[in-house]
Simulated scan of single mutants.
Amino acid sequence: MKKRLIYFLSQKHIRSSMAEAWAKKLAIKDAQFISGSWCHKEISPLVADALHEYAMEPPATISVTPSQQLLNEADLIVTIYDSASELAPRFPAELTDKIMYWDIKDPEQSTEELVKWAHYQEVCDNIATSVKGLEKVLL
Rank of each mutant, 00 (worst) to 15 (best):
D30T: 14
R90G: 04
E94G: 00
C39T: 06
A23R: 08
H119K: 11
D30V: 12
M100C: 05
T96H: 09
A118N: 14
S10D: 13
V47C: 10
L9W: 10
K132Q: 10
A23H: 05
V137N: 00
E53G: 13
Y81I: 00
G36S: 10
D106Y: 03
V137H: 00
P92M: 06
L5D: 07
V115E: 14
V64H: 15
W38G: 05
K29P: 01
L70K: 08
T129E: 15
K132A: 05
Q109P: 00
L26M: 05
L5I: 06
L70F: 05
V64M: 07
I104M: 11
D125K: 11
K41H: 11
M56Y: 01
A74Y: 08
E73R: 13
E86H: 03
V115M: 12
V64S: 08
E108L: 13
H119F: 12
R90I: 14
L71M: 12
K2G: 12
H40S: 10
A60R: 09
A31F: 07
S130L: 02
Y54C: 06
F91C: 07
H40T: 10
V78K: 01
L5C: 06
S67H: 12
H119T: 15
E20G: 09
Q68C: 01
P58M: 11
Y120A: 08
P92I: 03
N126M: 07
P58H: 04
N72S: 11
K116V: 05
R4I: 00
L139R: 05
E108C: 15
E108D: 15
D30A: 13
E42L: 15
I62Q: 13
S110Q: 09
S16C: 07
A60C: 12
S83Y: 03
Q68I: 04
E122L: 13
M18S: 13
Q68G: 03
L95R: 06
N72R: 13
L51P: 08
A74T: 01
L87T: 06
I99L: 06
I77P: 12
E86R: 03
P107A: 04
F8K: 10
C39N: 12
D106N: 09
L76M: 09
E112N: 08
L87K: 15
V137E: 00
M56F: 07
Q121T: 14
D125Y: 14
I28A: 04
I80F: 02
W22T: 11
L71Q: 14
K3S: 14
H13W: 09
P45D: 11
P66S: 03
I62F: 09
V137I: 09
W117T: 15
D82L: 03
T65S: 07
W102K: 00
P58W: 04
K2I: 03
D49T: 13
L95H: 14
D125N: 15
P107I: 04
C39M: 09
S63N: 09
I80D: 03
T111G: 08
A48R: 02
I77T: 04
M56W: 10
S85T: 15
